[in-house]
Design a protein around this nucleic acid. Sequence first.
DNA 1: TCACATTTAATTGTTCGCAATTGAATCTGC
DNA 2: GCAGATTCAATTGCGAACAATTAAATGTGA
Lengths: 153, 153
Amino acid sequence: MARKHSAADAPLRLDNQICFAVYSAAHAFNRVYKPLLDRLGLTYPQYLVMLVLWERDDVPVKEIGERLFLDSGTLTPLLKRLEAAHLVKRTRSREDERQVLISLTPQGQALKEKARAVPQSILAASNCSVSELVAMKDEIVALRDRLNAVIEE
Amino acid sequence: MARKHSAADAPLRLDNQICFAVYSAAHAFNRVYKPLLDRLGLTYPQYLVMLVLWERDDVPVKEIGERLFLDSGTLTPLLKRLEAAHLVKRTRSREDERQVLISLTPQGQALKEKARAVPQSILAASNCSVSELVAMKDEIVALRDRLNAVIEE
DNA sequence: TCACATTTAATTGTTCGCAATTGAATCTGC
DNA sequence: GCAGATTCAATTGCGAACAATTAAATGTGA
């Protein structure tokens, strides 16, 4: 019987950790996205914010945070960088002065067309069928939501 | 037919992105781990380094980086923090003075016993069977490796 | 109305993560 | 043996990520 380690250590072995699989896959995605997003002048988290805004414009920071699971400590400086790049505008809501609404500039809207090439390249890099990816995505989202549910308690 | 958006936009919709599923799941894991690792005095990436060292001691920085897909820019300061916490020692290899070998202190070894509680808690939080998690882990690792293969070229 | 709680962004400080560069040690071919 | 290439860790600079706090606006109950 080939036994590299004691069985009691199995739960602590790196290659048995699903969290490390997810963690390292996220970094791998980041590295594949990097050259694609460089052409758009975006980082990956900035790209996610743009995806939100391309779906619906004029969104409060709070709502962007809820969709991406990020807080203002991350979003405020990120949005300022997008503003400095002339892709979004930040304006205080007139109805509720606490809210800052994020809206696309014409350049921000135009970038959407250039971005359409990105998902195709990612699909190619994944070397996977669309249906496989969709199935995996649904499983991962379900796991994520269960984890987030535990945190809420 | 309920159609919230144009079909041409589907590839750009946030909820259709497997990368976002992975990205947000990684953050969800991080948040679940946080209170558990706080008790050990570790951050999540520090925990990963300790997992590597608990499997095999006296490992060069390079090899830790290969296992975790991290480079020296990330690892050097992280390892210095682990050293400051008296969990590891950093010593130049005598055979090859370029290498820095990382070894566990007695405290670092002792922490392994406290860490055994962590995977159990994560399993409970995931609300999943072990076999489901293993299957998902294998799929995600396979995807990660395909992505990394694309980067290598 | 008015004290008090809640909501929303912004700010501060710490830790990752990586690209790019540096400097020292080692290897290679000649 | 030695010049040039390679390897390895450290460093620098920038952009996340998040906890904790702050400040302003809004909501609520007596």
